[in-house]
């Protein structure tokens, strides 16, 4: 393979990885933006999304098969189901804690995450499940690089989801309310905005995007596991911070950037695949220390 082929291959890999990161990062950033909560359970909701999708797909596949039609149906259903579950978590675990010390709410979020992954572990006996799909291996050849239609469709689908989200947040009244709440919750209450409803909506959207990413990842990698949310949760958080936490375009940008950085990073001598995660966590730490506001984040001035 020539150097161009390697770069092209890594570009394709990076874009796919990056779009998963971006979708998960969006949920982090939206929830953080609106209630300043770092939702540790977010990665696990991604995991849950893929498991729910798996279950729905196995129920539906006798009727509509497990090709694109089946995947699309189970993705939509899983997004709705897991999205509602996200709202439920918010109601049960986060709403009572909003006025508690920050440490308590962080630990609560951690506990929610533990409940989710231990729950799925208990039901699956900690096994990998094969995410069986029937998508074929056709694709296009670019020089020596072969990119399947599946890969292209996955990237395309995540881009569509991101565009829809962007339009929703910037062109609708609900989106405007979300942005307003992120700035000043009390003022929004006084203006007659149903703040709790909008926060629930934010959880719903953020969680369902993570669920979508979970199913896409299941489709792409072909297997799912109860602990798959952990590393991607950490990576997506990194992506959200790279872009500037609280910023929606930032999360998209950060996700793609981290995906590309990782896939090109593995090509650098001495940073093989086994050092890939060390590389991204290293980026995270350096970034938080030196530029915690990220690329598109705003500097906040704390007032006494």
């Amino acid at each position: 393979m020539s150097i161009q082929d390697i770069l092209l291959q890594q570009l394709a890999n990076g874009l796919i990885l990056g779009s998963f990161y971006a979708l998960v990062a969006l949920g982090y950033t939206m929830v953080y933006g609106i209630i300043k909560l770092l939702n540790f359970a977010h990665g696990d909701l991604y995991m849950l999304g893929s498991f729910v999708g798996f279950v729905i797909l196995s129920i539906l596949s006798p009727y509509i098969g497990n090709s694109w039609a089946g995947i699309l149906c189970s993705m939509v259903l899983s997004m709705i189901a897991v999205g509602l579950f996200g709202v439920l978590i918010q109601r049960i675990a986060y709403v009572p804690m909003l006025s508690a010390p920050r440490l308590s709410i962080l630990i609560t979020a951690l506990a929610v995450s533990m409940v989710l992954y231990n729950g799925v572990m208990a039901f699956t006996d900690g096994q990998y499940l094969a995410f069986k799909t029937d998508l074929g291996f056709e694709g296009l050849e670019f020089g020596n690089v072969f990119i399947t239609y599946t890969q292209m469709i996955l990237v395309g689908a995540s881009i569509i989801l991101m565009i829809v989200l962007y339009l929703f947040v910037h062109k609708t009244l609900y989106g405007k309310a979300m942005r307003a709440i992120a700035i000043d919750q009390d003022a929004c209450r006084l203006m007659g905005i149903n703040v709790n409803k909008i926060i629930a909506l934010t959880f719903f959207i953020g969680t369902s995007l993570a669920a979508a990413a979970g199913i896409m990842a299941g489709t792409y990698y072909g297997s799912i596991h109860f602990f798959m949310g952990f590393v991607i949760g950490l990576k997506a958080f990194t992506a959200a911070v790279i872009g500037g936490i609280g910023s929606i375009p930032g999360a998209m940008l950060g996700g793609l950037l981290l995906g590309l950085l990782e896939s090109f990073g593995t090509q650098i001598p001495f940073i093989g695949t086994e050092w890939k995660d060390v590389f991204s966590f290293g980026i995270l730490i350096l970034l938080l220390v030196f530029k915690p506001t990220g690329i598109l984040g705003k500097t906040e001035i704390e007032r006494m």
């Binding site: 962080l106 950490l234 995270l284």
Partner: peptide
């Protein structure tokens, strides 16, 4: 040293990342 000036939730993530880095090393 460098991370303790960060906000509490960022610190949590940094320590999580650090824990993973040590294990991976």
């Amino acid at each position: 040293g460098p991370t303790l000036r960060l906000r509490s939730d960022y610190l949590a993530i940094v320590t999580l990342g650090f824990g993973e880095i040590v294990r991976l090393i």
